[in-house]
Design a protein around this nucleic acid. Structure first.
Lengths: 325, 325
DNA sequence: TTGTAGGCGTTATCAC
DNA sequence: GTGATAACGCCTACAA
């Protein structure tokens, strides 16, 4: 029943606990060859497995990190998480993933929970609404890395993409293709990424001398969005091009267009911020702004790893470029 | 620096550690109202956070479970994992996901690792090649649930789908649609699911009086598969219908057909075992055999939860039906 | 080289 | 109602 403890091994091998401990920690520099063998045999015979919990308590290191994802429904999140997990597996860490569901309260509870569990560090896709909590951790020197969204006014490690620039270029490409009626759909502007994307849109429009028409900008929850789209496409001069602010918006848009009988690439052109899996399988002329998820995850994990291992570094923001395909 | 311990709180509040402990565990039945307030205040003032590791050591319960996925590349795995995670979040458990990468050695290491970390139970998508290890855990009474693939000869909880039946029906539907040249592509037959699916294919073919032609059955790794497909479609009588044994095979097949210029639903009909995300977005006439991932994950998590909480039950296999869409 | 003792932060068991 | 005290299983000086 997995009750074999170090003491048992010690007794079985006829040595003391400390000796066994030394053995386990590979400090057998000054250890008799025969004691080593005795211990090995005893471990084998008893089927002993060290207890990491006990070790962690003593060492104050759990080899676990927490990942708090703002919303797991975004495909990007899972991609980045997976990259982080891969990095962890290569560095003897285990990751615990939590989904904050875009709820700051939930995020807060998870942060506290994971810290109570003594995880060695946290990678957070922030809801951006727990600034004091974030700040507190950073002041303490607790290892934290923010991903995807940036937390303003906070000198912390973060890994993001150039939302504004990418969107700006995307809208420019619409314009270059002759579009004049360009709409923009996004979820509520409560996080930096969405705001930046909208700014990119506006910049490009203004620069091209096109009017920014409020009725062409949908800002609503996924639930409400279909209704808003209905309104948008009921205008006497409906848009010929649409920018979807992220993957979930995109899904909603596609469903809407399908129901409406509008053909993508024909009746309306589409650019999406975010990649979706197997996008290449649906041969429709849609452009996706792909963020380098793997690189971002890797970088975030690496930054966290270094903090955990006390590699001194100034907090930095890493901005990755996105690519339109 | 997060060094506030229970002793500090006790001192600050002018009570003993035990009292604080009682308070934390909500056993304030026989506790003075004012002590309660004093402790509350002290906790607040010090910013105390209990240390779960220490608690776990004492209670021999970590509130963590491990999920060992045979191969995270299968979309089904991630779907099921997510369902498990959801269940865990509702039951105060944390899940740690590990990817065995179809490697029995890796699987073994993870099992040992997670047990060393004292996780309360394990949900395993087995590689099926560590039978002794599985058997050992079960004999010990350690909570384990197998998912997706079954482990023969083992009396354990498991949650699977009716691979043979579903495939059988799928092939029947091909036949009903007039197909005679039906091919079957699958990864190496080293796990039960694949074997069962092939059996289903053979049964349907035999029953319909159609010959089982070895050259119509591709059994190969993903890497080799394109070459095999090339051969298959170079036959003087190439197949008019193809059954893809899982999602990864499907992706390979689609790429191949695309390169070859063959149109799905026109030159060749396709049925795929497994769902892929956003399948509804690609309006091609492909049938997917969808496994009820969420239900399977939920069930698995529930079975594990009950074992952890010593709800006595006989080991059972739950076989979920799949649906073709 | 190996053993002894104390401590990591909690919880559990009793006395008080 | 509250408080010593002994575990939990391991690590780490330091002593032998």
């Amino acid at each position: 029943m997995e009750k074999v403890t170090m003491a048992d091994v010690a007794r079985e091998a006829g040595v003391s606990k400390s000796t066994v401990s030394q053995f386990l920690n590979k400090r057998y520099e000054y250890m008799g060859e025969k004691t080593k063998l005795k211990i090995e045999a005893a471990i084998e015979r008893l089927g002993y497995q060290p207890n990491f919990i006990a070790r962690s308590l003593k060492q104050k290191r759990t080899s676990m990190v927490g990942i708090i994802v703002a919303n797991i429904m975004h495909y990007l999140s899972t991609e980045i998480s997976r990259a982080i997990e891969d990095f962890c597996q290569d560095h003897d860490l285990h990751a615990i993933v939590c989904n904050a569901d875009d709820d700051p309260e939930k995020e807060k509870r998870y942060i506290e929970m994971l810290r109570a569990k003594q995880v060695d560090g946290l990678i957070i896709f922030p809801t951006e609404l727990n600034t004091e909590l974030y700040a507190g951790m950073i002041k303490e020197g607790y290892p934290v890395v923010f991903v995807d969204r940036k937390v303003e006014m906070l000198d912390a490690f973060s890994v993001v993409t150039d939302n504004r620039e990418s969107t700006y270029k995307a809208i420019q490409s619409f314009i270059a293709n002759g579009h004049r009626h360009i709409a923009f759909a996004v979820q509520p502007l409560i996080v930096s990424t969405r705001k930046e994307r909208l700014e990119g849109y506006k910049n490009a429009m203004v620069e091209a001398g096109l009017p920014i028409r409020p009725e062409f900008i949908i800002e609503s929850s996924i639930g409400e969005m279909k209704r808003k789209l209905e309104e948008l496409f009921s205008l006497e001069d409906p848009p010929t091009a649409l920018f979807a602010g992220n993957d979930r918006v995109f899904l909603t848009v596609v469903e809407f267009l399908k129901g409406k009988g509008l053909k993508i690439g024909q009746d309306v052109d589409l650019i999406v911020f975010d990649n979706i899996p197997f996008a290449n399988l649906m041969d429709k002329p849609i452009s996706f702004i792909m963020q380098p998820a793997t690189e971002m995850g890797m970088k975030a994990a690496e930054l966290l790893f270094d903090q955990i291992n006390k590699v001194e570094k100034e907090p930095q923001k890493f901005i990755f470029p996105s690519e339109m395909v």
